[in-house]
Amino acid sequence: MSSNMDSNPGRGVAGASDDSLQAEHEKLLGKQPDEKGHYRLLPLNLLFLLSAFIMFSGTYLGRFSGYFHPKVYNEYGLPPKPGADSAAAAVDPIALGKNVYAQVCAACHQPNGAGLPPAFPPLAGSEWVSGSEDRLIRILLHGLQGPIKVNGVDYVGVMPAVGPGSGYNLNPEKVAAALTYIRKEWAGIDTPVSAAKVAEIRGKDGTRQPVTVAELEKLP
């Protein structure tokens, strides 16, 4: 190629004008006046190539589609069976309760349940914890106001409500789990507190002022 061509390549090859270039390619696509709009067929070898790609990609898609299910993340995975979700969602109440206790209760009652006199009574060894389930549920749902005697010591403080609608807004399941954990840990009671019972008491009492010891003692 001459040096002149190299410095001004814009001229291209002599004869390859824009118009003749297009005319020649239009001829190839079969748009000639005498052809009446017939389409040129794809050359056979390209047709085979295209078919091979279609077959490969179709097979691959069919094999690894994960059934086009929105919850299948693994190409070998199967779609979950209906109803499998609820079984998988069962949570250990002790683990949940420990979690809730650490987040909500431990600031005052301390992680080891010893409390902080004179405002925050202990849970460990407390006759209230080993006592009535109904009273405990109400303390958590509504909070507690006024003096309370625990293990023979008087405590004066305010326990905030933690149940639904309170500042903490724990649902009945979490309230029940926290109580289950507290009773198991510091009173050795294995019977879990049921979320249904918490929800029932909450439904019966509604939102109300914090309870007092006098009120609690009327309960069984």
Binding site: S57, G58, Y60, L61, F64, S65, G66, F68, H69, P70, K71, V72, Y73, N74, E75, G77
Partner: peptide, 10 residues
């Protein structure tokens, strides 16, 4: 979902 990367190969 698994079909999105599979679709890329497709």
């Amino acid at each position: 979902p698994a079909w999105i990367p599979t679709m890329a190969v497709f």
